[in-house]
Structure formats: structure tokens, C-alpha cells
Amino acid sequence: MEAASTVRARLLASAEQLGIGSDLAGLIELYDGEDCAAVQARMAQLVTERLTTFQSGIVELIEQAAQLQSSTPGDQPGPREEVARVQGRIVEVGGEVGHDAMREARNVSA
């Protein structure tokens, strides 16, 4: 069985990777209380909050891209670069949510 300090270090590293390091003190407090279920529940809550934030950002970017696309006439040069930038950001944010956060959430709950 792993030493408590090793498990604690892994918990902190996982929280940082998930981008939920803002509540490290709360997670450590739960961990030190030896309530693994509470730690898992709190981490799941924090990951859900982070996903909600990312999803809201994605919706805003999609709306912005749609607005830009609808205002771009035919083949005239214009804000296409801006549309491409927004679409690139959507893909980037979606990748962060889809790959990192979900994979790590599964690893933490395992």
C-alpha cells in the first residue's frame, strides 16, 4: 500500500492537472480527515464546475462564430480570419475539456 504522503502528493498533482487547484486547502482538509468518499465527491463537484465553465465558454464562442459567419458576405474579404480564430479557439477549448479533464476525472475516481 502506498504511503499516505505519496497518495496525498498524487491527489494534489491530480487536482492541479484537472485545473481545480484553487481548492487544494479544502481537498487536503478532507483528505486529512481520511474521508476518501468526501474527497472524491468534492473533486467530482469541482470538475463538474470546471466543465460547466468551459461549456459556457464554448457556447459563447460558437455564438460569436455564427454571428461573424452570418455577417460575412459571399466571397468578399472580411472577418473570415476572425471566424477562423474563434473556430480554432472552440476546438482548443473543446480539446481541453474533452481530453484532459474527463480522463483525469476517471483516473481520480478509479
Score class of each variant (00 low, 15 high):
19 G>H: 03
36 C>A: 10
58 I>H: 06
27 L>K: 01
43 M>G: 00
26 G>H: 04
70 S>G: 08
52 T>A: 13
5 S>G: 04
59 V>A: 12
56 S>E: 14
101 A>E: 15
67 Q>E: 14
13 A>Q: 14
67 Q>Y: 11
98 G>S: 07
24 L>Q: 11
7 V>C: 05
9 A>Y: 14
73 P>Q: 15
11 L>P: 00
35 D>I: 00
105 A>C: 03
39 V>D: 00
72 T>K: 09
15 A>T: 01
49 E>S: 05
25 A>L: 08
40 Q>G: 07
64 Q>H: 09
93 V>T: 15
40 Q>K: 14
21 G>A: 14
87 Q>N: 07
49 E>W: 03
33 G>C: 02
25 A>D: 15
10 R>G: 12
94 G>M: 08
70 S>N: 12
76 Q>F: 07
79 P>D: 15
96 E>P: 02
46 L>C: 01
14 S>P: 02
62 I>H: 12
85 R>P: 02
79 P>A: 06
49 E>T: 08
16 E>F: 04
48 T>K: 07
22 S>D: 15
97 V>Y: 10
84 A>T: 14
28 I>V: 13
42 R>W: 01
78 G>R: 05
81 E>V: 07
104 E>M: 10
1 M>W: 06
106 R>K: 10
73 P>N: 09
22 S>F: 13
1 M>A: 12
103 R>I: 13
17 Q>Y: 07
58 I>N: 06
83 V>M: 13
35 D>P: 00
27 L>F: 00
8 R>C: 09
95 G>T: 10
88 G>E: 06
75 D>E: 12
11 L>I: 02
2 E>K: 07
28 I>C: 06
46 L>N: 01
65 A>E: 06
1 M>K: 07
18 L>I: 03
73 P>A: 12
13 A>G: 05
18 L>S: 09
76 Q>G: 04
39 V>H: 02
6 T>K: 11
107 N>T: 13
98 G>Q: 09
23 D>P: 01
46 L>H: 00
56 S>D: 14
46 L>M: 01
32 D>V: 02
102 M>Q: 14
51 L>W: 05
6 T>G: 04
32 D>N: 04
100 D>A: 05
32 D>K: 00
17 Q>C: 04
101 A>C: 09
90 I>W: 07
55 Q>C: 06
20 I>R: 00
55 Q>T: 11
50 R>E: 12
101 A>H: 13
76 Q>R: 08
40 Q>E: 13
10 R>I: 03
83 V>E: 15
103 R>F: 09
30 L>N: 00
83 V>G: 03
52 T>E: 15
11 L>C: 01
19 G>S: 03
103 R>W: 08
36 C>F: 11
96 E>G: 05
16 E>M: 04
18 L>M: 15
14 S>D: 15
34 E>V: 04
95 G>M: 10
56 S>L: 08
14 S>F: 11
77 P>E: 15
94 G>Y: 09
83 V>A: 06
16 E>A: 08
21 G>N: 10
91 V>H: 06
34 E>C: 03
34 E>G: 03
51 L>R: 07
42 R>Q: 12
